[in-house]
């Protein structure tokens, strides 16, 4: 028994290190990708100066952020103020532990994987609140208030859109959900549950505060919302966690609806990564295409459209299963 625990511990620690590296690497790739795609959509080259085709731009950005002065606003509770970015980042790392990247590439295979991800991503709101409250800035406060109402509201349709898949597969285990789907695209849940997928995707955008739902940090209204006052690494951590949550959302979407690591010919992590990045690219595409919605519109979309539709979808699914 003594052998068993340390091995699990070792796996967990190695896994944590690996996920940290994965998060960092993804952030680097995504920063570059986001800027390049934005450039493509804007009909401009995007980053081009640092390294060939600007490939070193994310590193330059990172270096700049590390080199910036760490600044705490006057009268702020500095402990909580600096705790907030960490609270935002830490749960993201945990979530990656349960994601099955490939048939043999999963750090912890647990029966409650999906619940774990849902639980830990919810903690992010708390970070947002603390950041907004301790910044001693009215814009931050408004941003935090928006963030709370937004994520509390959108968590409901998100859960409701995930439920049909759980009913279909009868498990919370992400690995099992992935293997429940076939290798070919028409065997994926996106075919049987298109509405759930759309709702899930919209909610994922809203939960990760991505445009057109980036209201907590709407720069034309609230300057930068909850992270107005953050500089240097504090801002970098928020930035990093935003990308991390984007990746998590894309991962969950890929597993639940697109068959995870299953794919034509040979299953493997390459299919998974490809699907994740397709979803991420769609997110980036949407961000650079649409204007921002208004706050009341955002909540109306949630309460008047997404929740009833999700419930309807759930009921239909249940009816079909029962029959």
């Amino acid at each position: 028994m003594i052998e068993a625990i340390p091995i699990q511990l070792v796996i967990m620690l190695v896994g944590l290190a690996a996920t940290m590296a994965f998060v960092g690497l993804n952030a680097i790739v995504l920063v570059y990708l986001e800027r390049k795609v934005a450039g493509f959509i804007h009909r401009r080259p995007g980053p081009y100066e640092v390294g060939p085709h600007g490939i070193l731009q994310p590193f330059a950005d990172g270096l700049k952020l590390v080199g910036k002065q760490i600044f705490t606003p006057k009268g702020a509770d500095s402990f909580l103020y600096w705790l907030a970015p960490m609270i935002s980042m830490a749960p993201a790392v945990v979530c990656f532990l349960v994601i099955p990247f490939g048939p043999h590439l999963q750090i912890i295979n647990t029966n409650v994987g999906l619940v774990l991800i849902l639980a830990f991503t919810g903690v992010n709101v708390l970070a947002l609140c603390i950041a907004g409250w301790t910044s001693q800035n009215k814009y931050s406060l408004l941003g935090a208030a928006r963030g709370v109402s937004q994520s509390v509201a959108y968590e409901i349709p998100l859960l409701l859109s995930v439920l049909p898949i759980i009913f279909l597969t009868g498990t919370f285990n992400l690995f099992d959900i992935a293997t429940n789907q076939g290798s070919w695209p028409w065997q994926w849940f996106v075919v049987t549950q298109p509405l759930a997928f759309i709702i899930f995707f919209i909610c994922a955008l809203a939960e990760t505060n991505r445009a057109p739902f980036d209201l907590p940090e709407a720069e034309s209204e609230l300057t930068a919302g909850f992270h107005t006052e953050y500089s240097g690494m504090g801002f970098a951590l928020f930035f990093l966690s935003e990308y991390a949550y984007m990746v998590i959302a894309a991962c969950v979407g890929a597993i639940l609806f697109l068959g995870g690591f299953k794919g034509p010919i040979v299953d493997g992590w390459w299919w998974f990564l490809a699907k994740v990045y397709i979803l991420l690219l769609i997110m980036i595409w949407i961000r650079w295409t649409f204007p921002r919605v208004r706050f009341d519109q955002l909540l109306n979309i949630c309460w008047k459209w997404l929740i009833p539709l999700a419930i309807l979808n759930l009921l239909i699914t249940l009816l079909v299963i029962a029959l």
């Binding site: 639980a119 903690v123 709101v125 708390l126 609140c129 603390i130 709370v148 994520s151 509390v152 968590e155």
Partner: peptide
Amino acid sequence: VGAVSVLIF
């Protein structure tokens, strides 16, 4: 943590 404390906040 995710819901009740946030509402308290």
